[in-house]
Amino acid sequence: MRSVATLVGVILFLIVFGPLLAPHDPTAIDIPHRLSPPGEEFLLGTDALGRDILSRLLHGARWSLGLAFFISLIGLAIGTALGLAAALGGKVVDWAIMRTTDTFLAFPELVAAVVIAGLMGAGTWSLIFALSVTGWMRYTRVARGVGLSLRTRGYVVQAQLAGLSPLAIARWHYLPSLLPSLTVVWTGMFARAILGISALGFLGFGVQPPLPEWGSMLLDARVHMRSTPLQMIWPGLVVVTCVLAINLAGDALRDALAGDDTRT
């Protein structure tokens, strides 16, 4: 849990303070300095419009990481609520929710996101909608699974006998036990959201220029691959680093939880 907490701290720091560290205005066009190589003034060079790549990357954290964070939390909220409703709400509710989940899972999430974002018209809100709508199913499955296993647990039965309302039971007796496994799912979904945002940005369906989003930066850089290949390296490197760090933190948490299970 500590690795994930540290990671969340670093990412929130990047989202909040990243733009403040930027040496230049990320959208300031500077044609005389276009496509300059890395140097003293522009540490990572400039893009085709002479914008400082380092500054764009730092500002981009707010879009690529911040949006991914937001989207993965929306998925967490929707998915957990539906999963618990399926576990606690009786057979009909369970059937309806799980068949809906199956339907949403019966399609590659990113392809669905491309279709949805593309049809809604490119833009940040379409992006958020598309990735949230396709990003809740894993939480639902896990929440329902754990929820079902908790239903016959002693303290849940006691809470029912005490006459606690279903909402209070969900809040006090289900959520705390769900938290660790949901956090593992969340790390995976957070990483997927980062990849999804940059993929949609790369296809031109995501955050629109001139906003500095990493995927759309890659799209810009692609045209000038022959002359300034480095320009294409940076955004990808940042995405890979973030996704790798999140995945490793998630793996560590999963291993720690598995260790807990074997001990008790």
Binding site: R153, G154, Y155, V157, Q158, L161, A162, G163, W172, H173, P176
Partner: peptide, 15 residues
């Protein structure tokens, strides 16, 4: 009548 139950496994009876 709000009956009460004392369970066999005291540990799992408490959150």
């Amino acid at each position: 009548c709000r009956p009460a139950l004392v369970m066999q496994e005291p540990r799992s009876a408490f959150n």
